[in-house]
Amino acid sequence: MHCDIYKFPKHNDMYVYIARPCYPDDTDDIKDWLGVLPKDFRASLGVSKFVMHLDLGDTPTLARVDKEEVLAKLKSQGYFVQMPPQDVMLRQAEQRARDAQDKKYD
Results as ranks from 00 to 15, higher is better:
Ala19Trp: 00
Ala19Gln: 03
Ala19Ser: 11
Arg20Tyr: 02
Pro21Thr: 11
Cys22Asn: 12
Cys22Trp: 05
Tyr23Cys: 11
Tyr23Gln: 08
Tyr23Asp: 15
Pro24Asp: 09
Pro24Lys: 10
Thr27Pro: 01
Asp28Ser: 08
Ile30Trp: 10
Ile30Cys: 13
Ile30Pro: 03
Ile30Phe: 11
Lys31Ala: 09
Lys31Asp: 03
Trp33Asp: 11
Trp33Asn: 06
Leu34Ser: 06
Gly35Glu: 11
Val36Gln: 09
Val36Met: 10
Leu37Met: 06
Leu37Trp: 06
Leu37Ala: 03
Pro38Thr: 11
Pro38Ser: 06
Pro38Phe: 02
Lys39Pro: 01
Asp40Arg: 11
Ala43Asp: 07
Ser44Thr: 13
Ser44His: 11
Leu45Trp: 05
Gly46Tyr: 08
Gly46Asn: 08
Val47Pro: 00
Val47Trp: 00
Ser48Phe: 01
Lys49Gly: 01
Phe50His: 09
Phe50Trp: 10
Met52Asn: 03
Met52Pro: 00
His53Met: 12
Leu54Asp: 04
Leu54Arg: 09
Asp55Met: 01
Asp55Asn: 15
Leu56Trp: 04
Leu56Arg: 08
Gly57Thr: 04
Asp58Gly: 02
Thr59Arg: 10
Thr59Asp: 09
Pro60Phe: 10
Thr61Met: 09
Thr61Phe: 08
Thr61Gly: 00
Leu62Trp: 04
Arg64Phe: 14
Arg64Val: 07
Arg64Leu: 15
Arg64Asn: 14
Val65Ile: 14
Val65Lys: 13
Asp66Leu: 10
Asp66Gln: 13
Lys67Glu: 08
Glu68Ala: 13
Glu69Phe: 06
Glu69Leu: 12
Val70Leu: 03
Leu71Trp: 05
Leu71Tyr: 01
Leu71Phe: 00
Ala72Tyr: 11
Leu74Thr: 03
Lys75Gln: 11
Lys75Val: 06
Lys75Pro: 01
Ser76Met: 04
Gln77Leu: 07
Gln77Pro: 10
Gly78Arg: 02
Val81His: 06
Val81Trp: 04
Val81Pro: 06
Gln82Val: 02
Gln82Trp: 03
Gln82Thr: 03
Met83Leu: 15
Met83Gly: 12
Met83Arg: 08
Pro84Asn: 11
Pro85Gly: 06
Pro85Glu: 14
Pro85Leu: 13
Gln86Gly: 04
Gln86His: 02
Gln86Ser: 09
Asp87Lys: 11
Asp87His: 13
Asp87Pro: 03
